[in-house]
Design a protein around this nucleic acid. Structure first.
Lengths: 233, 233
DNA sequence: CGCGCGGTTGATCAACCTCAACCCGCGTGG
DNA sequence: CCACGCGGGTTGAGGTTGATCAACCGCGCG
């Protein structure tokens, strides 16, 4: 899937230097949960690199429908997909530390700061791949499959994976808007997964896999035998 | 929306030079309609820049469901979203000319060929934006809205826009797989649009807008008054 | 205590899918 | 020449999935 996570290690070093006549990388900033980094349509004067925490990127249609186009965490680049104006809104869903980069530095960045540019290129390629995966998920899968895919990728990202347990850092409504579903549907499917013994919700925002392979099968597009008769292959 | 079109002007010049010890850009290749440039899972030994024509990028799920994640034309970069193996299949939907770039050149490309790298960066950012727009379309819109959005963006791309008339270079099934619908649904909605006097299909692959503003309203998420002129069928 | 927020659950409904028939233009072969 | 099949598209009937609307729960908080 789907979620534009990924880590960049030496950005701090690379990004903190100043090159030529271009504006320097600004110092890191702190953003609190539920604060916005920027809104769709704002003038895009800078891009950001996430250093820690989670943000969601979303668009709002005129009729009020919203679509989350990605969650991003450490290493992700924000705001580079547009030009002139941000094409997404960006809201912190946890406390977040970000490093702003003046937009003016992006022109010719490959010449002026090849190390940073290489990182950005790699990262944005990853985000494109993630967006495409998400397209496949949203466009071609059922509600059940979407949720399975989502849980698996969230778990992979929250690598603090002691004993198949992981955080769901977002609300039901966020999941729904990410997956192109209604929050009621997400809720229903979650409890259904639990009822079938595939997962255990230790709290609203904390989950454990009991039958990871069933979810994997679902996510791959296979039929998940609801029953006990799971042919193990 | 949605479709990763976009033009790069001086790539030919930038790409045809050889830099340092890295492999040179290979010469342009011709690909015929319906041929594949590569398949999902193939070893990714090179990326491509489209010089002319149209390709579709798609993924196939185990259950046979397919999702077209993008159409690409002149200027688009293909294959950069993955690493090691292609994550999409790529098929020419018209005759196509492409310029391959050895994958090995991508590492450190910013240092070795900053001009090309800058172009790639800009282009890939555009593709990311397009993918995100498509996410919003697929995830948050109804079949009717999806189709309206799609027609408008296709028309914009086929700039040969004399008198609101344009080509639909792909089959109904391709549209469906792009929009996350069934081809029957696409077909039905197309004829419905026609019946309502919004468009006129001069042939299966050629379309004219009669009431562009209605489609625009639909695509923006507004309710399309079925209008006064809905009579007699 | 009352309220609001986030989540769950239930009943109902419609959008879209599924399956099937059918149309049409075209190329092929008898 | 016609019969035939095939690919792509359209149309129809009926079924499912997921949306909609509404009630309700649990909790934190002023």
């Amino acid at each position: 899937m789907c979620i534009a996570g990924g880590r960049i290690h030496d950005l701090q070093g690379a990004g903190s230097k100043t090159f030529g006549a271009t504006a320097p990388t600004l110092s890191a900033q702190h953003v609190s949960t539920h604060d916005h980094l920027f809104f769709e349509g704002d003038a895009r004067d800078r891009i950001y690199i996430v250093e820690s925490g989670w943000v969601k990127l979303y668009r709002t249609l005129i009729d009020g429908q919203r679509q989350i186009v990605g969650f991003a965490n450490s290493g992700s680049i924000l705001g580079i997909e547009s030009d002139g104006h941000y094409s997404n809104s960006c809201e912190a869903i946890t406390d977040v530390i970000i490093r702003p980069i003046p937009a003016i530095r992006i022109n010719g960045i490959c010449k002026n700061d090849p190390a940073l540019a290489d990182q950005i290129l790699r990262q944005i390629a990853r985000q494109l791949g993630a967006a495409q995966s998400q397209l496949a998920t949203i466009g071609a899968q059922s509600a059940e499959q979407k949720l399975a895919t989502f849980l698996l990728s969230i778990a992979d990202l929250c690598e603090v994976n002691h004993d198949r347990e992981f955080d769901l850092p977002m609300r039901r409504g966020d999941m729904a808007e990410f997956l192109g579903l209604r929050l009621e549907t997400v809720s229903r499917k979650m409890t259904e997964f639990q009822r079938r013994g595939w997962i255990k919700l230790t709290s609203l925002y904390h989950c454990r896999f009991l039958q990871r392979h069933v979810l994997e099968q679902l996510a791959q597009g296979g039929e998940a035998d609801t029953g006990v008769a799971l042919r193990a292959c």
